[in-house]
Design a protein around this nucleic acid. Structure first.
Lengths: 346, 346
DNA sequence: CTGTTAGCGCATTCAG
DNA sequence: CTGAATGCGCTAACAG
């Protein structure tokens, strides 16, 4: 049986399906949307339609459904900058997976901090009738949420003027507590220094909520901070410089670095000074950046739960659309400790 | 003047616009799609429509346009795994930017190597009438392209059974040449060892085309390779082990590491052996992973042009849709050298 | 030069 | 239990 093999077989529509099954489009639609049962369509007919659908490979045209129903089973993920640093990567991955579980697709876009770009992106998404929007920031901070944004959640960000939108953020205070406790439990009650910020709460990089919250958490444990070196940027070079400066005047027994990149620099300074990690000085850090497990010794650090943050964002977005949720709720996601080899009991 | 301020103002449709401007929907449509000129619509009417559109904030409903025209100004980006490692991140960023320049949105999805997942994703995208698809792989390799995929390009991948689809890949052979020449020009004619693969072409990680092509490029320069240590996985630990093993028997003057993570391990082994980079041994590498500029001394490496790859993918996708392009063409994107501090002339 | 008519593919009253 | 009719918002023939 010779059959024409079109280069690109045209999509099979509901009408095609109805015809093949010998029923009306309505009936076919009813069956396919699963409402055949409640409307008591004959089991016989139902099977006929289902089989035809299977044979023809019928799939409803999502665009048409969208036009008809106003929904698109699509959400937009817009981040301020580089939806691409490893950071954002895992957030997207989490969001992606949670979305897939719900049969939802993800648009992504980056605003690069440009409000005009942001507006354009939001419009492009709204024009495509997205069901909701995830507004993500690369590092935890406050953001101004555009008006008329529709259903949305803030990811890794808090609304500057309160907006009623829910927020998903890492539990930085808890992370600070974890880091400090971990040191305390290892017997480090003194000689603990801070690299990257502090000791005063406002001694961190400007708009960084991570800095102040981590400090708050550390304080809560009662751990006594012997001293600190602030850094404007949390990059390895600054960690190196800060630690070198610290070592000029002090003999730390433990370092809390405000993030892994700083810790990398600290390692270098420690090595330069002939100090061994963790024999001479223990090091704890935050983020669980990939390098943390490449360093020698592997770095003990409190992980940013990027993946979970992403997952939670779409979950909250859908919960919110479903029912009335408490407005402006902020969801804090725990930051788990990654115990590795840079802390030693004394 | 008091005005009702609806919580969510209903979208303004073409009909609203037409009515406000006192014209028919067709006329409004013509003006808005810019074809008013060629059809010689009175300048007066045109201005009237344009102004009304501006005042009402009219924006065409993309879903409806999609249903009508079959196009969606949307493309899908599906990667095999983790569209999120820093690697993929920059590819997505490049694609995103190129897409934005064309007024196109990006769907993203990950197959995690699962063919069923891949089919589902592709379907979900096709159901939404994407105009084209970018099939991306995280590390350069061959992939089997699903049938009936429609307009598509392969990103960082080659089709296993030839498929006629264009491919965008980094010019790994050129990268190999660059790395070798760089050493040659620094006077390193001997004592050059390989970490990660070789010296035979097939001595790399299995499906990795990067390994063999980089080796090919190195060979082309005539650079004499004094020896090599292969690694199954290109991770820091293996680089450390391989280099340590190498140092047990040889005194290299230069190392070519097949990627930056291996180089990180090599640095550690070199340090352990009391050897200085670059005074005692020069190191060149590939990828330009973020750590390359965090290492001390900063690592000279040949960069994977992720961003450019992403850009080029959407560019080729659109070119291909526009006209007849040579089928199965493979586009090689140059890999630029990042001169830093790990190579010293001898 | 502009308005009328007709679908795109689907979901949904409303009659039979 | 099923079919005919309607419209989502827009574009494209085809008349006026």
């Amino acid at each position: 049986m010779l059959e024409a093999s079109p280069v690109s077989r045209p999509r099979v529509t509901l009408a095609d399906l109805a015809q093949a099954a010998g029923v009306s489009r309505t009936t076919a639609s009813l069956v396919m949307t699963g409402r055949g049962r409640e409307l008591r369509i004959s089991h016989d007919v139902e099977q006929r339609v289902l089989r035809a659908a299977d044979e023809l490979g019928y799939r409803p045209n999502a665009v048409s459904v969208g036009l008809r129903t106003g929904t698109s089973r699509t959400i937009g993920f817009v981040s301020d900058t580089v939806a691409t640093s490893r950071l954002a990567g895992d957030m997207i991955k989490g969001a992606l997976e949670a979305a897939r579980e719900r049969g939802v697709m993800l648009f992504i876009g980056e605003t690069e901090g440009d409000p005009a770009l942001e507006r354009g992106l939001l419009h492009a998404m709204q024009d495509r009738q997205v069901d909701g929007i995830i507004l993500a920031a690369m590092y935890t901070r406050t953001i101004k949420v555009p008006k008329d944004i529709g259903p949305a959640v803030l990811l890794n960000a808090l609304p500057k003027p309160a907006s009623g939108l829910p927020s998903i953020v890492p539990d930085e205070v808890g992370a600070g507590r974890s880091a400090a406790r971990l040191l305390l439990e290892a017997g480090h009650h003194e000689g603990v220094y801070l690299i990257g910020a502090g000791p005063r709460l406002r001694d961190g990089p400007a708009a960084s909520v991570a800095a102040v919250e981590r400090l708050v958490g550390i304080r809560e444990t009662g751990l006594k901070i012997a001293g600190a070196r602030a850094c404007a940027e949390w990059q390895p070079e600054e960690g190196l410089a800060a630690t070198r400066s610290l070592l000029a005047d002090h003999r730390p027994r433990a370092l809390i670095c405000l993030n892994d990149r700083l810790a990398l620099g600290a390692y270098q300074a420690l090595a330069d000074a002939g100090l061994s990690v963790p024999d001479d000085v223990s090091v704890v850090s935050f983020d669980d950046h990939p390098i943390a497990s490449w360093m020698r010794p592997k770095l003990t650090t409190v992980a940013l739960p990027h993946y979970e943050l992403g997952r939670k964002a779409v979950q909250v977005l859908f919960d919110q659309m479903g029912e009335e949720a408490e407005p402006g709720q902020v969801h804090r996601v725990a930051m788990p400790v990654r115990h590795r080899d840079s802390v030693k009991p004394r």
